[in-house]
Nucleic acid binder design. Structure first.
Lengths: 346, 346
DNA sequence: TTGTATGCGTTATCAC
DNA sequence: GTGATAACGCATACAA
């Protein structure tokens, strides 16, 4: 026999539903639903009664039930790169904060070590019924891309251009990378090395591409591009194995951590920084100010980059095209300190 | 008129449900449900037909519907400290990976700047109907603690002892902090300074408490405890304003980043490290190996700490008491490098 | 071994 | 302005 919602008291260990609220307020559950949806066609008096009952029972909506009916989850999934040792935390913070502000919950999904069971679970998660949108901070493998015919969940991959070649962070990144090379060239440098980040990071891939493009455009020489992994160790090794003793006089490091390793590696090889080799970092890690020498770098507002990424997703969710390319100024900002100087006189 | 699930074709832009699968496989939706739940009482032939239909339609379960019926969400919420500039990422990675392995999805919630709307949303999220458990990496304010009479969602606050005074990570932390003081005391140090982390981090609070307890136990002198914020800057300021010129000969920094600031701050004041003052860090940040001098520190496996935190939550979810205090060895490991040495001869 | 009926908590539709 | 009723997709109880 179907339980009568409004007449029978429910188990004590269960959260109240709109039926309990309705009973207490002396209205129908429907009216409670209206109240929760802030329906303006309610008599103020009724609203007050309902409101009181809601507080009295400390009612909280059941999100699953709501989502089942509305076909909206108010959730987004954020996909993180598989490198367990390095999470783009500012990006995540920014995106999560923006998502929360917009009323969205955030599911985080790591892509590390895809056990079959986890892959299946993630596959389920990324369905339209389970999540409204996907924000990825790592390039998506084919298996996660939308299936051919399937209707797709809106996806934004941070660090990839959209169909109209608009991606604020990317344009800013490209410009900054180009500016770095330009700055070093202006100082007189001709031969460069880039210590790159892992290819699972869109930012690393794009930075590397722009480095190569910029050097080529300017008729300079790229002595080498060394694969790195964001670690100081990779910078250290690049310094000792590739840079020291090479004709390169300027190094563009994928980030400050790598730059730190490069500097220390060069110093350990008796190579003066910046007397013999200049080093440029990226991220404006606070530590850079305390390095010896203080590190030239790029200040990136990753928080707002994360927020911007979510905003792009939000536009998609609203069915709008992402807004026109946003103002890119102020996102990245070059900071010149003592790790860069003119190359030694020939 | 109620739509007949099995007879009528549904909108093309909707994911298939078990009804579609059932129709294609020529069975009832119930049988499909059995298949998905891996019910062993199925005839292999039937299972094969269903399995085929599932793949054919690329069926994925609707998590909301499932959770509404089962009263389990298979989700946990992870609460992060409000400091937007610093997310305990390894902890998060470890916890998220463990959660995913156990079949749980992870919702991240930041506690930063609680606008009313966000607070409400978070309040909703943390209901039993919406999440099976809560894992917090920050001490919980009263407003988030379970209401008096309300049945509660299992909560684990990493860095807080449980009712039986068991918390693997904590015990390990306390031991390591005590070991640091012991090591420095063995070297001959008598007067100490601790540069602490922010009080919104349980780890910082506990580390500080253990520092004070250990110094007192050993009859040593704590010249000062300086409030810091995990930043190199806070270490730098502590060094120049408090440590340099003080009688302290040993500094226990809340983490490596702070330690780096302390070292550079001391050096900038003409104080030799470790000749005049020894500095001990915490975290074994890779950069510490490249510091000048290389940094003595504590290797912490934050990944496994995160995993352990989730395991404690999982025990609660299974209705078990958390297992007996786990082996604490191997979680923290002191690393002695050149930033610590005997104090200057008196 | 498989099928039928029903409820989970919410919102949408349509009466009144 | 408010109420009755029907789905949403799935899993459980029970019947066959």
């Amino acid at each position: 026999m179907p339980e009568q919602h409004a007449t029978q008291s429910r188990d004590a260990d269960r959260r109240p539903t709109i039926y309990e609220v309705a009973r207490l307020a002396g209205v129908s559950h429907q009216t409670v639903s209206r109240f929760l949806r802030k329906d303006p066609t309610m008599r103020p008096d009724t609203a007050r009664r309902v409101s009181h009952a809601v507080r009295e029972l400390d009612y909280r909506p059941n999100l699953a039930a709501r989502s089942m009916r509305t076909r909206r989850t108010n959730r987004i999934a954020v996909i993180l790169p598989e490198t367990t040792s390095f999470v783009p935390t500012r990006l995540l913070s920014g995106a999560a904060a923006a998502a929360h502000d917009a009323g969205y919950l955030v599911d985080v999904v790591g892509l590390e070590g895809d056990a079959a069971a986890r892959a299946e679970r993630i596959g389920a998660l990324l369905q339209p019924a389970n999540v409204d949108g996907i924000l990825s901070f790592t390039p998506l493998a084919e298996n996660l891309r939308p299936a051919p015919g399937a209707q797709r969940v809106p996806i934004v991959v941070d660090g990839e251009y959209d169909d109209n070649m608009r991606a604020r962070a990317l344009l800013a990144d490209a410009k900054a990378a180009d500016d770095i090379i330009g700055h070093l060239a202006d100082l007189g440098h001709r031969t460069f090395v880039h210590v790159a980040g892992p290819r699972t990071f869109a930012s690393a891939v794009n930075r590397r591409a722009e480095y190569e493009a910029s050097v080529a455009r300017r008729g300079l020489v790229s002595h080498a591009v060394v694969d790195g992994d964001w670690s100081a160790g990779s910078g250290w090794r690049a310094a000792r194995e590739v840079i020291a003793g090479s004709p390169a006089t300027a190094v563009f490091a994928a980030n400050d951590r790598v730059a730190f390793g490069v500097i220390r590696g060069l110093q350990s090889s008796g190579v003066d920084v910046p007397g013999r080799v200049s080093v440029f970092g990226w991220d404006d890690d606070e530590l850079g100010r305390y390095f010896h020498p203080p590190l030239s770098t790029v200040r990136v507002n990753r928080e707002s980059q994360g927020r911007a990424a979510f905003q792009r997703l939000l536009s998609l969710l609203h069915g709008q095209e992402p807004a026109a390319p946003m103002d890119t100024a102020g996102l990245n900002h070059l900071i010149f300190r003592d790790s860069t100087a003119p190359p030694p006189a020939v």
